[in-house]
Simulated assay, not measured.
Amino acid sequence: MVDLHLDPDVLSSLQEVMESEYPKLLETFLDDSQKRVEALRKARDDAKALGLIAHSFKGSSGNLGAVRLTQLCQQLEEESAGPAAELGALVDQIDQEFALVRPLYESERQRFQL
């Protein structure tokens, strides 16, 4: 697993495409991601639910360049076919990774707000 948390090229491309809506995109991602992390915590014992949440979180994280978060979500999605008791550590890793990238996205959002 790579140690890259955010892909600056993805953020740069999004900024070019989204222009003045870029900060709103980042804000939406942060809000949505917080809800997904909370949903993962609540679904710790439900492998099927974890897999579904991880799948959608993987997509949004990938679209916003959260490289390691995307990888962790993909791993959770793939391993959700197994017993949920073994998935708690991955949920914790996703929670920790989001806690790490959240301030990076918040800082990025602040750079473009008028």
Rank of each mutant, 00 (worst) to 15 (best):
V2E: 12
D3Y: 13
D3R: 15
L4E: 15
H5K: 11
L6K: 09
L6M: 13
D7R: 13
P8C: 13
V10K: 08
V10C: 13
V10S: 11
L11T: 08
L11V: 09
L14V: 04
L14W: 02
E16I: 00
V17G: 00
M18L: 15
E19S: 10
S20D: 12
S20N: 10
S20V: 07
Y22E: 01
L25F: 02
L25G: 00
L26D: 03
L26N: 00
E27Q: 15
T28D: 07
L30E: 00
D32M: 05
D32T: 15
S33H: 00
K35Y: 03
R36K: 13
V37S: 00
A39Y: 00
L40D: 03
L40S: 14
R41M: 03
R41L: 03
K42W: 04
K42C: 02
A43I: 02
R44I: 11
R44M: 05
D46C: 07
K48V: 05
A49I: 13
A49V: 12
L50F: 09
L50S: 06
G51V: 10
G51S: 07
G51M: 09
L52H: 14
I53N: 02
A54T: 08
A54R: 11
S56G: 08
S56R: 14
F57W: 05
S60C: 14
S61V: 14
S61P: 08
S61G: 15
G62K: 08
N63I: 05
G65C: 09
V67K: 12
L69W: 03
L69Q: 15
T70H: 13
Q71L: 15
Q71I: 07
Q71A: 11
Q71G: 14
L72I: 07
